[in-house]
């Protein structure tokens, strides 16, 4: 039975019934795969991502010789069944490659890579279902998996998206866009370091009026802090269970 959405616009509710500053339901688990060094599963609404961490381990020797810091390699695979229409995204897909690059640069700066010289950390992400905020979900899942792997990092890297409604009279920013909203509205993805206001990742791919960006960014940064609270609760619950069970 389809939901009756006829009154949503009157009450200033969005397509899925949220208010402008509401996050979708975030559900996360860590240590999901016993064989991996670190692993996580994250749902942000209908976007579902699995992440596994391998390493730090001695990786392939590069031609220029491994430096004094460990390398971060990211592999994202988008399942064919994850979107609305079945589509195969190959390894050489430009959008996937860009996301991989974003994650690599973001985590290279946040992890304490100097502690593991000559080694490699491999992040493998599998997108099971996509419904907006894909990059944000990947960043959050990777953060959880890296914490599970016990790799030192300066703080949580939490990400979420913010959009802006286009019409002139209501210039309201929106938090955490879903797939439909992402197609309609200009949006940005922000990744924030913990409780600080340090923005580690900022991605804006759509055309938007310059004066709206500030409002969008402020909403996104605020959302990231709320995401951090949720992820932190997941890590703490898991940690407490581990401490208690290892009698």
């Amino acid at each position: 039975m389809p939901l009756d959405t006829s009154t949503y616009s009157l009450a200033l509710l969005r397509l899925d019934g949220r208010r402008w500053n509401e996050l979708r339901r975030i559900h996360a688990q860590i240590s999901t795969q016993a064989a991996a060094d670190g692993s996580s599963y994250l749902e942000m609404g209908n976007t579902k991502v699995i992440c596994t961490v391998t390493g730090p381990a001695e990786g392939r020797r590069t031609a220029q010789g491994a430096g004094q810091e460990c390398r971060v390699e990211v592999e994202i695979s988008v399942a064919g069944f994850s979107g609305v229409e079945r589509k195969r995204r190959g390894r050489a897909d430009k959008r996937t490659q860009e996301m991989q690059h974003t994650l690599t640069t973001a985590f290279s700066s946040i992890l304490f890579t100097h502690l593991y010289p000559h080694s490699t950390i491999i992040l493998t992400l599998h997108v099971l279902s996509q419904d907006g905020s894909l990059l944000a979900a990947c960043l959050n899942a990777a953060t959880l998996a890296l914490i599970d792997a016990g790799i030192p990092m300066s703080d949580y890297l939490c990400a979420c998206t913010a959009g802006s409604t286009a019409n002139e009279d209501t210039d309201e920013p929106l938090l955490d866009l879903n797939g439909l909203e992402e197609q309609e509205l200009p949006f940005l993805t922000a990744g924030v370091l913990g409780d600080s206001d340090k923005v580690a990742v900022l991605m804006l791919e759509t055309r938007v009026r310059v004066e709206r960006v500030e409002g969008m960014l402020a909403v996104a940064v605020d959302g990231c802090k709320r995401v951090r609270g949720i992820l932190d609760a997941v890590v703490r619950a898991h940690g407490r269970r581990m401490v208690e069970e290892g009698v």
Binding site: G55, P56, A57, D148, G150, I151, M153, G239, M242, V243
Partner: peptide, 21 residues
């Protein structure tokens, strides 16, 4: 920098990770 438990040895503070390589 890690999720773990606080370990105090005299004046030295270190964190033992819950799980690490």
């Amino acid at each position: 920098t890690v999720a773990g438990t606080v370990l105090k040895t005299n004046k030295l503070l270190s964190i033992t990770p819950l799980r690490a390589r």
